[in-house]
Amino acid sequence: MSAEQGPPRPDIPGREAEEMSGFDSAQPSPDPDRNLTPSGAGEGPAAAAQGPPNQNAAGQVEQDLDALLADTQKERDEYLDLARRTKADFENYRKRMSAEVQGANARGKAEMAVGMIGVIDNLERALAAAGIDAGADQAPEEPLAQGILLTHRELCAVLERGGIEGFDPKGEKFDPTWQEALSKLAVEGTGPGIVVETMQKGYRFGDQLIRPARVVVSE
């Protein structure tokens, strides 16, 4: 072996040597000026304060629901108040109409009674002229008198069924609410202000006076 030859070189195939040489040359050289700051580090504290996007969206939805609930409750209260006022107005209207109907019914009965009372007065005068007591239980023998008495009783029964009653205050203390004094008379043994005679019976419908009793009062 000649002395000019160098040390023995490993036997490396030519293609593999070229690939290794190309790999070494393709590696980028490290850049000392490259920004190695972690991602998101430059956004600052404002970005961190905003929180995650999902949390912000959930908070906004909750606020919207609270506002919608408040509006709904307000509308509910308004409708309830309107319903209460409407109910109260209807109750007042119903009571007023009921009172008006009752008043009209009472006026109608009173008007009917006034006409019938005049007929009853005439029948009582006819019976008195014949010497017959209209309140007597015994019927007269004469057919005409019997007919007059039966008619009188039937008319009085019709008034009673309608709630209209006649009253005779003889012997009672004079009451100007229900009675009309035609004259005064001194009666021995009777104190003043006592009805000593009833000239004409009175009629009333409950608390409503249809006709006052016309009386003579002691003095």
Results as ranks from 00 to 15, higher is better:
127 L>T: 08
138 Q>C: 04
166 G>H: 03
155 L>H: 14
145 A>F: 02
127 L>M: 10
148 I>E: 04
140 P>R: 13
131 G>D: 00
160 E>H: 10
164 I>R: 06
140 P>L: 08
162 G>W: 07
142 E>G: 08
156 C>D: 05
162 G>C: 03
161 R>T: 08
166 G>C: 05
128 A>V: 02
166 G>K: 06
136 A>L: 01
145 A>W: 01
125 R>A: 08
145 A>G: 09
153 R>M: 04
160 E>G: 10
140 P>N: 07
123 L>E: 10
150 L>S: 14
134 A>Q: 08
165 E>F: 14
134 A>R: 10
130 A>Y: 05
159 L>A: 04
147 G>C: 00
136 A>Y: 02
143 P>T: 02
155 L>K: 11
137 D>L: 11
142 E>Q: 08
126 A>C: 04
152 H>V: 03
149 L>S: 08
150 L>M: 04
152 H>S: 12
139 A>D: 15
149 L>G: 03
132 I>Y: 04
125 R>W: 00
151 T>Q: 08
145 A>Q: 14
141 E>M: 08
133 D>Q: 09
134 A>K: 09
153 R>I: 05
160 E>Q: 15
126 A>V: 03
140 P>Y: 09
140 P>K: 12
160 E>N: 12
128 A>K: 14
137 D>Y: 05
161 R>C: 05
128 A>I: 03
143 P>F: 00
138 Q>K: 15
136 A>F: 00
131 G>L: 01
148 I>F: 05
126 A>F: 04
153 R>T: 09
139 A>Y: 10
148 I>S: 02
157 A>R: 13
165 E>M: 14
146 Q>L: 08
152 H>E: 11
143 P>C: 00
129 A>G: 03
159 L>N: 07
125 R>M: 03
166 G>E: 07
160 E>T: 12
159 L>D: 07
166 G>A: 12
165 E>D: 10
135 G>I: 02
166 G>T: 02
163 G>I: 03
163 G>W: 02
126 A>S: 10
164 I>H: 07
131 G>S: 04
130 A>V: 06
132 I>F: 07
149 L>A: 04
166 G>Q: 10
154 E>R: 15
154 E>T: 14
131 G>Q: 00
